[in-house]
Simulated scan of single mutants.
Amino acid sequence: MKKMLRRFSLLLSLALLATTLPVQAQQIAFTWDDLPAHSKLPLGDSRVEIGRKLMAAMKAEHMPPVYGFVNGIRTEEEPLSTPMLQGWRDAGLPLGNHTWSHLNLNQHTVEEWEAEVLKNEPLLKQYMAGQDWHWLRYPNLAEGNTPEKREAARKFLAEHGYKIAGVTMSFRDYAYNDPYARCVAKHDDAAIAQLEASYLAAADATIGYTRAMAKTLYGHDIPYVLLMHVGALDARMLPRLLKLYRSRGFSFVSLEDAEKDPFYKNDLDLSLPSVPDTLEEAMRARGLPVAAHPEATVDLNTICR
C-alpha cells in the first residue's frame, strides 16, 4: 500500500511539473521572394514604401534577420524599385539568390538556369559585401522535372557554395496581390475587406494543414520555413499576420536556425542526393494521401474585375 501511495505521489508530482514547465513555441522562419518588385503596384504606392512597411512590421515584432530573395532583372524593369534593396540591407536584413529573372528550371535547360543564377551574383555581392549571400530559392520551387536535371542543378549549386532555402509552409499569399491592386484602383473598400479576411483565413487554415503533415510524418512539429512575397497586400497585412502566428503559438527564427532541423539536411549538404523538399513531397514519397490545400474564401480571379 505504501509503495502504491509513493508511486501515486510521484506521478502526481510529475504531472504538476509538466503543467508548470514553459511550453516550447512552434518555430517559423519567414522568407521573402521577388525583391525588389512583386506583382502589380497599386495606384499611389511604391516598391520602396512596400519595403518600408514590411521592415517596420518585422522590426516591431523583434524578428531575427529575414532573408529576401532577389530577381535582379526588376532593377532594370523598375529602376525606382532598386532603393528597396538598400533599405533592406540598411535594416540589417540579408539577401539571397532567386535567379536573375525568376527562371523556372522545369521549363528551361540546366545551362540556361545556371546562367541566370550567375547573372544575379554581382548584384548580391554589391549589396551583401562581406556577408554570405549563398542561399538560393528556386523560382516556383521548381528543382528540376527529371532526376538528371535535379542532380545537375544540385551539383552546380554545391560547386558554387550554395545552400537551398527550402519551403515547408505557404498559404499562397502571392495570389492576393494582383486582386488587391485591382480593388484599390476601383476604390472598393468592401472588396478589400473581403481580401483581407480571406488572406488571414488562408494563413490560419494553412497552419493546421501543414502541422498535420509534420505530425503524420514525424510525430512532431518541425521548424517551418514560410514562403512570402513582397507584394502590396502583404505589406498592408503583415502586422496582423505576425500577430496571428504569435496567437497560434509560433516564435520567429532565422532561416539558418530553422534549417538546422534534420528535415532540411539535404538542402544544406548538396553532396547528398535529392530528397523530397516539401512536406507534400515527403507524404507522397511514403504513399500517404495529401489533403487539399486550403483555398481562398473569395474568388481571386473575378473580384474587382
Rank of each mutant, 00 (worst) to 15 (best):
R137L: 05
I222H: 07
D221M: 11
A142W: 08
G208N: 04
T210P: 02
H229T: 01
N266R: 10
V184C: 01
V167Q: 00
L238Y: 06
A201C: 06
S198L: 06
P239C: 08
N177M: 12
Q194V: 09
L268D: 08
V230M: 02
F156T: 03
K243D: 11
S271V: 06
H187A: 08
P139N: 03
H229G: 01
K243Q: 13
L238W: 05
D234R: 01
A201Y: 09
D188P: 13
L136C: 06
L200D: 08
L255T: 03
Y138M: 08
R248V: 04
A185W: 04
F263I: 03
Y176Q: 09
K186L: 11
D261E: 04
E151W: 15
L242G: 11
A153R: 13
S247G: 14
Y199M: 05
L217C: 11
L226A: 02
Y245W: 14
L226K: 00
L233P: 01
G231A: 03
A190H: 12
Y162G: 08
D178A: 11
D277N: 09
Y176G: 05
D234C: 00
A142T: 05
D173S: 12
A153Q: 07
L255S: 12
Y162D: 05
G161K: 06
Y264P: 02
D221H: 07
N140V: 04
N177C: 13
I164W: 11
A158N: 09
A193N: 14
L227S: 00
A197R: 12
Y264H: 03
S274V: 07
R154L: 15
Y180E: 09
Y162V: 04
T216A: 15
L136D: 05
K149P: 10
H229N: 02
A152C: 10
L136E: 06
E259P: 01
D221N: 14
E159A: 14
L241C: 12
A205D: 07
E151I: 13
D277L: 13
L272W: 08
G161V: 06
M169S: 03
N266Q: 10
H160V: 08
V167C: 00
D178N: 11
N145E: 14
G208R: 04
A185G: 05
G249M: 11
G161C: 03
Q194W: 10
Y176T: 06
C183W: 02
L255G: 02
G208K: 05
L217T: 13
E151R: 15
K186Y: 05
I192Y: 12
K260Q: 05
E256D: 12
A153H: 12
